[in-house]
Amino acid sequence: MCAQHPGRDAVLTCARCGRYACSGCERAEGRCRECAQQAALAVPDSRARARRAVRFLQVAAGMDLLALFSYAILFAGAGDDTSLWEDGANSVVFLSLFSSLAAQVGLLMWFHRLVRQLNAQGADMGVTPSMAVWWWLIPFANWVKPFQLMKDAAERLGGAHFAAALPISLWWGANILARLLDQVGRQVAKAGVKAGAFDSVDGTSSHLIGIISSLCLVATALFCVQIIRALQERMDQRREGYEAVDGAPAPVEDVAEAA
């Protein structure tokens, strides 16, 4: 008989504690409800990391917005003496790169903890938390795999409709476009160096690429903030459910089925 509900027949022996469990107490990986709860709550929650990642992304979006304005001013006055604005724009771009790096680190730290929680709850992501982070850093694979992992996490937290409602595709599309434009901008810069100096056409092209790239980076950061908040809210609801499970009776439908 079930250890938690003595009036019900057991359907398994918990792989962790060895107690008998009924269908209402059965959880993933052959564990009983109490062991599944303990395993889920043993992983620290990701709320603090989510807040930190959101703050970093907001700062990065602000710096990218400043870079966008700097490029727009240079684009508007590409034919005039803009050496002062060039120096200012270079400083803003440097700060933007630094803030983007901090935002990326914050995002990966949050995602590592999110995957760890999902795996502990039985919603297996198919990867370890460390591997989930490494996929963002592996060349070529990081053009596709992070998008798949983020979408997979959303589906496990809220289902296919929930994942489809999030701007995951827009977030990743803006990110890919920004990376492509960055490569194009580097090629334009190299061509200018080989020529000895930027002519007005090269300068205008470089500034236009900078405008579009900065706009994509702003969109990427803002979409990512929206995704993090939505996924973290679902994870918080899950953890609250696990915390409320302790001592709870069997589900009504299970009791009716047993009767």
Rank of each mutant, 00 (worst) to 15 (best):
Q4G: 00
G7N: 07
R19N: 11
G24L: 01
E26P: 00
E26I: 01
A28S: 12
G30E: 13
R31K: 13
Q38E: 06
A39E: 10
V43D: 03
A53K: 06
A53P: 04
A53L: 01
F56A: 12
A60Q: 10
M63S: 11
L65T: 07
L65C: 08
L68W: 15
F69M: 14
S70N: 08
D80V: 01
D87K: 15
A89P: 00
V92R: 06
S99G: 04
R113C: 04
R116D: 09
Q117T: 00
A120N: 02
M125H: 02
L137M: 05
F162K: 14
A164V: 03
A165C: 12
P167A: 15
W172F: 15
A174W: 14
A174R: 14
N175I: 11
I176K: 12
D182H: 15
G185R: 12
G185W: 10
R186A: 15
Q187N: 11
A189G: 08
V193H: 02
A195Y: 02
F198R: 00
S205Q: 11
S206G: 13
I209Q: 10
A219C: 14
Q226Y: 04
R229D: 09
R229W: 02
E233Y: 12
R234W: 03
Y242C: 02
P249D: 04
V252D: 06
A258H: 06
